[in-house]
Design a protein around this nucleic acid. Structure first.
Length: 792
DNA sequence: GTATCCTCGATTTTT
DNA sequence: TCGAGGATAC
């Protein structure tokens, strides 16, 4: 999506552009029929209520697959059709560019060109940028400020650390970046950082370094992502007249995925909502899975308190998935305590039960899933409608390898994205310097790429001069050429580089930006560098560079393109051939597939041990929400898998089925006994020791035959706890843990000698229900399920 | 400036 | 176990 900023001339806040008003008026006329407007067609009563409740704060609790986007877009159409506001008077915020793009498209379908006038539809960050550019001087910036990405941020922090004589081995820049991000997420300026936290970096210098970093940003006329939220907040607080302008401007405000907002975003919204108070937030507390990067579920849980008189509408009719899938998901998520309470109601038949199956190890898990996909394919299912959702990306590899063997087309979502590739970042760095010669970080990135013999020594001279004279790096380089300090060789190379940049910069308004980009890449020797490179990726990198130039075409100029890139960092990739999708659960939020495979439901992996260790119960609940997100991606088939052995950090570990399996309702789940392909796999393992397939089925069965499991069945109860009912968690998590670990044991006592297929012989040192701690003679202490060992 | 050795860490990720 | 990234040696 080309950024709107690039296309729309800056409008004046106080004088609405008449052109846009015309569009709105036409849209309104087109949409205003005699009776109920067409766009209400097919909305259920709750959705309609959410659309029609226009005045005052509104929270729409939209469960998975309940038509959330539809409500948002129809609401916009309704506001415009009633003439309550013009397109540019609606603030509509999303989290990702993808969501913003989709929203714009769908509004476009409803309204046609009126969607074009929606200048304030975008991500928190893009809207923040827009606001900040308008009032840059009030924030000590010029309106052409650059936006640093994570890489630039780290580079700058490294500079700060070295200038402050802090050993960056002991106190890595990454760690400081992480801390600063955390503070910014919570809208803390350097002076607001709690003393205790500042203490945690570089012997108490955390807040001080943060302050120095901020000062450096200002010097560079740059902001980081956090500033795009923080600076507008500061602006609004310190300049009530500015805030007032936006209050007048935004008649209606809509926020998507409200459960993902962090403190800064929340404050930002609160300030703006002091105007009209027509703030509609849509979200689902049960799908809050980004706590680890600053999202505060509390924001959504507290909505009614924060915005007095708020109306809450629950969307619970799910049009996506069949009954068993929804029942399973609802029952699972009901184990969480901190939630607003909401149960998905199926609108169609029960369909297929959710299946749960176990595999001996992760390799077998991948083989079985691969086989199942092939069989679905023979039955005529499209691969595009099949997804494998994993907890952690290392799980993907096994599937990829298997699918390559099978010749099964797949696509991996995630991974290094287009704009993060080294060659793209290098090319962009060149263009950034051309567009804004003061961009020191970009200059630093490419001043010796391709290698031109400018080493650290020359760089240090430039940096020192830049500091001493308080000028940008490029300017410092220029001055250095006039002085006596440079050796002849670097002098001539540097001179050529500086002159090249002067030449390119002069061309900015003279030739098309795509042609300029090509010229820069050519003359700088950058393309050459890859042409000469004999490595395997070089060809692909050259392709990427061409793709980059192509992607610049829709933009008016270089500046517009760079703005887009700094915020978007994401390139559309075409649909391509029919293929299975492999991605993380996090990446799957908002998507849906007919068939969803959910491998790796094992304790330690899912829920992830680290999440439990770091965040305790809150961590567990977020993991459970992730499981809920996973299951609710499925329209017709959800297939959960676990493996009893998995290689973690290169070492085989035996694993126990996830507690989340215990939390699925038996009535909606089929436990699959693995087909008899045991031992028929790759590698030398398996098969030879004559184990029966029940070796695998058994631990699973025993897990199910627990008091916790039975209690879970009894607690299934009616599907809906009723609006507003806060389910206090029908069963305690601790209870279930104890329950599943007090399952009947296969009868090994302390001191018994046992044999395990992977770990060999050992002695039982502890018995905890059906889980044994065994001191293996060779493999050390391990926890295993009793049915995996035999009496030795 | 580049090759090789070694050490460390190993969920999730957007802007 | 394996890979990236930094440090060291040439």
């Amino acid at each position: 999506m080309p950024d709107q900023n690039a296309r729309h001339p800056d409008d004046d806040l106080t004088l609405p552009a008449p052109r846009a008003g015309g569009i709105a008026a036409r849209a309104a006329a087109a949409l205003r029929p005699a009776s109920a407007p067409d766009y209400f067609q097919g909305l259920n009563p709750e959705q309609r209520e959410a659309v029609e409740t226009l005045d005052g704060p509104l929270l729409v609790l939209a469960g998975a697959g309940t038509g959330k986007t539809r409500v948002l877009t129809t609401r916009i159409a309704h506001i415009l059709a009633l003439g309550k506001a013009r397109p540019f008077e609606i603030l509509s915020v999303t989290f990702t560019n993808k969501a913003a793009r989709e929203m714009r498209e769908r509004v476009g379908k409803l309204l046609g060109e009126a969607a074009e006038g929606m200048q304030w539809l975008g991500t928190f960050h893009s809207i923040g940028t827009r606001i900040l550019r308008r009032h840059a001087e009030l924030a000590g910036l010029s309106s052409s400020f650059t936006i640093l990405d994570t890489d630039d941020q780290i580079r700058l922090l490294k500079q700060v650390l070295s200038a402050e004589n802090i050993d960056d081995k002991r106190w890595p820049a990454r760690q400081l970046a992480f801390a600063i991000d955390g503070w910014k997420n919570r809208a803390l300026a350097p002076k607001d950082v709690p003393a205790g936290e500042a203490q945690s970096f570089a012997a108490g210098r955390g807040a001080e370094l943060y302050a120095i970093y901020q000062a450096r940003l200002r010097q560079l006329n740059a902001v980081d992502f956090g500033d795009l939220l923080l600076e507008p907040i500061r602006l609004f607080r310190e300049h009530p007249d500015v805030l007032e302008q936006y209050h007048r401007r935004f008649k209606y405000m809509l926020v998507d995925e409200y459960q993902d907002t962090n403190v800064a975003q929340y404050l930002w919204l609160r300030l703006l909502a002091k105007g009209s108070s027509n703030l509609a937030c849509v979200g689902d507390d049960d799908q809050s899975i980004y706590g680890w990067r600053g999202a505060e579920v509390e924001n959504i849980l507290r909505f009614e308190k924060d915005f007095p008189g708020a109306k809450v509408v629950r969307l619970e009719r799910n049009y996506r998935s069949t009954g068993h899938i929804l029942n399973a998901a609802s029952h699972l998520i009901a184990h969480n305590q901190g939630r607003l309470g909401k149960t998905l109601r199926p609108q169609t038949e029960l369909g297929e039960k959710v299946t749960v199956a176990g595999a001996w190890d992760s390799g077998e898990e991948a083989r079985q899933i691969g086989d199942e996909i092939e069989s679905l394919q023979t039955k005529g299912h499209k691969l595009d409608e099949i997804a494998i959702l994993v907890r952690a990306s290392f799980q993907m590899r096994e599937f990829e390898e298997r699918f390559i063997t099978l010749g099964l087309p797949y696509r991996v979502v995630g991974g290094p994205r287009f704009y993060e590739r080294a060659e793209i970042r290098d090319a962009l760095a060149y263009l950034r310097v051309v567009a804004s010669p003061a961009d020191g970080l970009a200059f630093e990135r490419i001043y010796n790429t391709p290698k031109r013999g400018l080493g650290d020594a020359a760089l240090k001279q430039i940096v020192d001069l830049s500091r001493a004279e308080e000028v940008p790096l490029l300017e410092a380089a220029r001055r250095l050429l006039d002085g006596p300090d440079l050796k002849p060789k670097p002098r001539s190379t540097l001179k050529e580089l500086v002159q090249s940049f002067d030449r390119w910069s002069a061309l900015i308004d003279k030739i098309p930006h795509t042609a300029l980009a090509e010229q820069v890449l050519e003359e700088s020797g950058y393309t050459d560098m890859w042409t000469k490179d004999r490595s395997a990726e070089a060809q692909g990198r050259l392709e990427n560079l061409k793709e980059l130039v192509r992607s610049m075409e829709p933009f008016e100029n270089l500046r517009g393109f760079l703005e887009h890139v700094s915020l978007v960092m994401d390139a559309d990739r075409g649909p391509g051939e029919d293929a299975v999708t492999i991605m993380t659960l996090h990446a799957a939020k908002g998507l849906e597939y007919d068939t969803v495979f959910l491998p790796g439901w094992e304790e330690g992996l899912f829920p992830h041990q680290r999440s439990l260790d770091e965040s305790g119960r809150a961590g567990l609940e977020e993991e459970r929400r992730l499981a809920y997100v996973g299951v609710t991606r499925a329209r017709r088939r959800a297939k959960v898998w676990f493996a009893s052995n998995r290689r973690i950090h290169g070492m085989w570990q035996s694993s126990l089925p996830s507690r989340f399996l215990d939390e699925l309702p038996e009535a909606d789940v089929d436990v699959i006994e693995a087909p008899a392909t045991f031992g028929g796999g790759s590698g030398g393992m398996g098969g030879s020791y004559g184990a029966s397939r029940f070796d695998r089925a058994e631990p699973f069965k025993s897990t199910y035959d627990t008091p916790g499991w039975r209690r879970a069945q009894e607690n299934r109860g009616p599907a809906s706890p009723g609006p507003g009912a806060r389910r206090s968690g029908p069963m305690t998590i601790e209870g279930e843990l104890v329950a599943s670990s007090t399952a009947k044991s296969a009868g090994f006592g302390k001191g018994a000698r046992v044999f395990h297929q992977k770990f060999g012989n050992g002695t039982v040192v502890e018995v905890d229900g059906n889980k044994l701690t065994v001191a293996f003679d060779k493999a050390g202490h391990k926890r295993v399920v009793d049915s995996f060992v035999k009496a030795a």
